[in-house]
């Protein structure tokens, strides 16, 4: 554990809590991609199956359980509790175009051809693209509420901090995980355009982020 890793995890947690509270308090999931949230729930489910097979630390176990619970609670709010506020027409990204290649790649490029290992690899690859339906939705509607952009900012910051964590671990421990690092770099790149808009539009202005 290093400071980048810890801050990264905290940003990830903050992002998930921001989204959950936004939907819970406003009783609306307008502007939120339910598909991205289902993908994230799938990411956590397939990655954290090792909760049943190996114990790493109390921190690790607690964080995994919290992420899983919040991910499913968010999906529940979007698709069941506040379903009437869900913009299904704008959330039109075809997730099969993500799931099929990601599933195929996880069978081809993994550390061991074992069920848990393939599911872990699948979760790593899927996480790198899971935000695309949300970014697609913002591009399609041309706007996002500022609270939604704060959610995306913390999610992107979490990714950037994990990159710093890997640089740190490489230099201090000689640790290098190519699947996680390559996917992590790809994932972080998706946020770059958003970061630019966030700093130039959201933080300088107020209210919604509108696309040029």
């Amino acid at each position: 554990m290093n400071i980048f890793r810890l801050l990264g995890d905290m940003c990830h947690l903050v992002a998930i809590i921001i989204l959950f509270l936004k939907i819970w308090r406003s009783k609306s999931c307008a502007g939120i991609s339910g598909k991205s949230q289902v993908l994230f729930a799938l990411v956590f489910t397939t990655r954290y199956l090792d909760l049943f097979t190996s114990f790493i630390s109390v921190y690790n176990t607690v964080m995994k359980v919290v992420f899983l619970v919040l991910a499913y609670a968010t999906v529940y709010l979007i698709y069941l509790r506040f379903r009437s506020t869900y913009n299904s027409e704008s959330d039109s990204f075809r997730v099969e175009f993500l799931l099929v290649p990601v599933a195929g790649l996880s069978f081809l490029e993994n550390y061991a051809f074992a069920p848990l290992e393939i599911l872990w690899t699948f979760s790593i690859y899927l996480e790198s693209v899971a935000i695309l339906p949300q970014l697609f939705m913002i591009t399609k509607t041309g706007e996002a509420e500022s609270i939604t952009t704060h959610y995306l900012f913390f999610l992107g910051l979490y990714r950037a901090l994990y990159l710093a964590n890997w640089v740190w671990r490489y230099h201090t421990e000689g640790f290098f995980d190519q699947i996680a690092v390559v996917s992590g770099v790809v994932q972080t790149i998706f946020y770059c355009d958003f970061f630019y808009l966030y700093f130039t539009k959201v933080l300088r202005g107020s209210g919604k982020m509108t696309l040029p």
Binding site: H12, S54, I56, I179
Partner: peptide, 10 residues
């Protein structure tokens, strides 16, 4: 380090 070591990350 083996790939298993990455599993301590979330």
């Amino acid at each position: 380090l083996s790939p298993k070591d990455v599993k301590d990350e979330l």
